[in-house]
Amino acid sequence: MSVENTVLGMWQALSDRDWERLKTFLADDCIYLDMPVGPTAAAKGPEDIVKRLKIGIEPLASYENFTGLLLDNGRDAMYEHHEEWHWTTGESAVLQFTSVHRVENGKITLWKDYWDMAALANHAPPTWLEDFATADMSWVYDATGEV
């Protein structure tokens, strides 16, 4: 599978919130991290990455990824895109992303998201950070020195 098909397939699975399909695009040792938070709060492996993603995305009334520019060199990809988040309480946010992926043997081995956390926090319901703080954090992996 091409780098483009792997990256876009994974993002479509995430947009569909098809957690099982999403896992099929991730290598067993894939590292995922939000760069605004840094490598000390990364997730490693498909199961823990999905746990991490579900904290923010699963409770939403709707979530959608909108494709944009994708550049790759046959192994590494940079993907400019945006997400729309809609909460059941009526709030919504449009989040601009640049994601960096490393793809080896048709699987994503590294996934780094660059985005503006304040843009999310400024539009989320007041309980959003509280809900995040009480979530299952068993996925936390310190990837310092690995990314």
Results as ranks from 00 to 15, higher is better:
71 L>W: 14
96 Q>G: 08
114 Y>H: 11
28 D>H: 10
118 A>G: 08
58 E>H: 01
93 A>Q: 04
130 E>H: 06
104 E>M: 05
110 L>W: 09
109 T>R: 07
88 T>I: 11
81 H>S: 08
125 P>G: 04
84 E>A: 15
141 Y>Q: 05
90 G>P: 05
21 R>G: 09
100 V>P: 01
26 L>R: 14
71 L>D: 08
70 L>C: 05
142 D>E: 06
30 C>F: 05
145 G>L: 00
66 F>Y: 14
98 T>P: 04
33 L>K: 11
135 A>N: 01
72 D>Q: 07
50 V>E: 06
69 L>P: 13
9 G>A: 01
22 L>E: 12
10 M>E: 12
74 G>F: 03
5 N>R: 12
28 D>I: 09
17 R>H: 13
1 M>G: 15
94 V>F: 10
10 M>C: 15
67 T>F: 14
90 G>I: 04
86 H>Q: 14
73 N>D: 14
6 T>E: 00
60 L>S: 02
29 D>H: 12
49 I>H: 05
77 A>G: 03
1 M>I: 10
38 G>I: 11
40 T>H: 12
16 D>T: 01
84 E>G: 09
83 E>V: 09
79 Y>Q: 03
67 T>S: 14
137 M>T: 13
43 A>K: 05
47 E>M: 09
31 I>Y: 08
23 K>C: 01
30 C>I: 07
45 G>C: 00
60 L>Y: 02
18 D>W: 03
90 G>R: 03
22 L>Y: 13
1 M>E: 13
24 T>Q: 09
109 T>C: 07
19 W>K: 07
89 T>K: 08
124 A>M: 08
118 A>S: 12
16 D>E: 06
74 G>Q: 06
110 L>D: 05
91 E>C: 06
124 A>W: 05
37 V>H: 13
107 K>G: 07
31 I>N: 08
18 D>P: 09
46 P>L: 02
137 M>G: 10
116 D>H: 00
126 P>R: 13
11 W>L: 12
27 A>C: 05
127 T>N: 10
60 L>F: 07
120 L>P: 06
97 F>P: 00
40 T>N: 07
58 E>I: 04
47 E>N: 11
81 H>A: 05
15 S>N: 02
112 K>C: 10
17 R>K: 12
89 T>W: 01
92 S>A: 15
124 A>H: 00
96 Q>H: 11
62 S>L: 07
103 V>Q: 02
141 Y>L: 03
95 L>I: 15
11 W>K: 12
6 T>L: 02
102 R>D: 11
111 W>A: 14
122 N>Q: 09
33 L>Y: 12
37 V>F: 15
12 Q>S: 12
64 E>G: 15
99 S>K: 04
5 N>P: 07
72 D>R: 02
98 T>S: 14
62 S>W: 07
131 D>N: 14
140 V>H: 06
3 V>L: 00
16 D>W: 06
137 M>Y: 10
125 P>S: 03
82 H>R: 11
38 G>E: 02
54 K>S: 00
135 A>V: 01
102 R>F: 10
20 E>Q: 05
79 Y>R: 01
104 E>P: 04
119 A>I: 00
13 A>T: 05
132 F>S: 13
12 Q>T: 08
146 E>N: 08
128 W>P: 01
53 L>Y: 13
112 K>Y: 04
124 A>G: 03
31 I>Q: 00
31 I>E: 01
51 K>C: 08
97 F>C: 07
26 L>Y: 09
78 M>V: 15
52 R>L: 11
15 S>H: 00
114 Y>W: 03
18 D>H: 07
104 E>D: 15
